[in-house]
Amino acid sequence: MLKIGHYEFTSRLLLGTGKYPNFDIQKEAVAVSEAEILTFAVRRMNIFEANQPNFLEKLDLQKYTLLPNTAGAKTADEAVRIAKLAKASGLCDMIKVEVIGCQKTLLPDPIETLKASEELLKEGFIVLPYTSDDVLLAKRLEELGCHAIMPGASPIGSGQGIVNPLNLSFIIEQSRVPVIVDAGIGTPSDAALAMELGADGVLLNTAVSGANDPVKMAKAMKLAIEAGRLGYEAGRITKKRYATASSPMEGMSIG
């Protein structure tokens, strides 16, 4: 069970809703992923095209918990405003704090992320900051009272997988709130590795939406995250330098 604030989830896959080829594929991908938390962005509406379809309207909102992000914000103030807009929908009280400090790498601005998280916690949000894999920053965010920490595996949408598994494992070890690996996941094995390291969940988008077959990839990610989690709970064997036979050496019928 994944517990974030007052919420409890069975699934450990958090799925983004951006950049799918079309709504039908997206809907099926969301269904087979069995994700219970879906991320969204907040943007200006085209008021002159009221009938343009919107993915949110196609969802049974009883089945999903919305995790809006503050993507687009470059400062803490902008992030706080976007979060408040999202909450005013009356549909959610969780927020993914995302304050981007560099447009080329899309890496988060640590100082603005910290400030925005602090302010939103005061406002009563369930706060999940997207952060770099900096161990001390993760600790500071936890000390503020954030409900989960979401370190990136590698830059958003890059599909590079986990570039610093050591830092990630330090963050996981020290953290008493859930750690959700967010951004940079490319393959099911990346997601499984995150879970084997002890992550509480994985948030991904492009790895599924950008796959040749997003529905199949959604299923693959679901299975990988379950497998990785089971592997973590089961506890891996220690690595040895030389072989250890699996079959007994006694009772051989030769020699």
Binding site: G18, K19, A41, V42, R43, R44, N54
Partner: peptide, 10 residues
Amino acid sequence: IEIVHFVGGG
């Protein structure tokens, strides 16, 4: 006036 809504995002 600003009128905003939820769109797909990660």
